[in-house]
Amino acid sequence: MSEKEILLDVRDLCTVFQVGKRKTVTAVNGISFQVGAGEILGLVGESGCGKSVTSLSVMQLLKNTSGRVVSGQILLKGKDLLHCTEKEMRAVRGKEISMIFQEPMSSLNPSMRIEAQMVEAIRLHTDMDKKAARDHALTMMRKVGIANPETTIRSYPHQLSGGMSQRVMIAMAMSCDPTVLIADEPTTALDVTIQAQILQLMRQIRDNNNTGILLITHDLGVVAEMCSRVIVMYAGRIVEEAPVQELFAAPKHPYTQGLIASVPKLGSGVTSLPSIPGSVPDLSMMPAGCKFAPRCSKACDRCHQTEPPLYRLKDGRQSRCWLAESEAVQPAEEKEEQIG
C-alpha cells in the first residue's frame, strides 16, 4: 500500500442502530480499511453483514435513520468526514466521493428528466452555466457508452432500461471527477450480459481517472474479476482481508472457505455443493465469542468463549480466527472486544 496514494482511510468505524428505547444493535463493529488511488477494493459478505451500512456511514447518509456512527475516523485525503458539518458534507458528496446504488430505478427521481437531474448535480459542484453543464452531461453520457445521449437526456427514468439507468447513474456519479467511488451492488439488479458491460465500464473509469473504487458485492465472481484486494465481512466485523489471488487460492478464515466452496462454478461439472450449516446470527442476539463459531466446523471451546482479534498475517493479510494465531505477525486491534 505504501507506494500508492491512500485516498480513503477508514479507521475503527462503529455504527449502531437504535432499536428500542434503551436498546441498540451494532451493525458495523470496528471496521478499518484503506482505498488507494486506482485500486478496486472489494467488500464481500452476505445480507445483513453490515456492508451497506459501512458505505452509508462513509457517505454520512444515516442522518434520517435510527443509525449513527459512534466512533472511528473516516479520512478522505486526510480530512475527517465525521467532523464535517452537513453543509461541508454536501460539498464533498458527489464532488470528491460519489456513490452508485443497487437500484438505479429507485435512485433516480422519477418525475425529473435525466437532463434536469444531471445538470443539477453538475451545477451544484462547479460554476458551469446551464448550457455548459448540459454539454458536460452529454459528454459524460457518451463516455459511459450511451449511444444516443441527445435522446436519452430528454427521457424520464421509466423510459430507460435497467442497464441504461445504471449508466446514467454512473455518468452522474462520475460527472464531477470524484477521487473515490463507492459502488454498492452496482450490478445485482442487472442481467449478466448487461453486468459484463457495466463492470467493463467501471474498469475503464478506474484506468482513465485513477479513481479509487470501493466495490460492495455479494458475488464472488464479480470480486474475482474486478478487485485487487478483498475484505470479507461477517456479522458487522471484518473476518478476513487479503489480496484477491491469495484469498481465492488459500482462504484463511473458515467462513471465507465455506463461502468460496458454496459458490457454484460455471463449467466445473459438480452436481452437489458443500454448504455452510445454519444461518447468519441476529444482530440483537449475537453469540458470545467468535460470531461464526455456531456455524463453524472447526470451532473449539475457546471460539465459543472469546472472540479472536483480527490477526495481522504476512503479505498484508488479516484473519479473525484463533487458527491464524500461530501465523500472526502481530495481533491487530485488540480494544474492539468491549464494543457491541
Binding site: V192, T193, Q195, A196, L199, D219, L220, G221, V222, V223, A224, E225, V244, Q245, F248, A249, I260, V263, K265, L266
Partner: peptide, 9 residues
C-alpha cells in the same frame, strides 16, 4: 461468456 468466474487466476 458474461458470467463472472469466481477464480482470479
Amino acid at each position: 461468456s458474461a458470467v463472472p468466474i469466481p477464480d482470479p487466476t
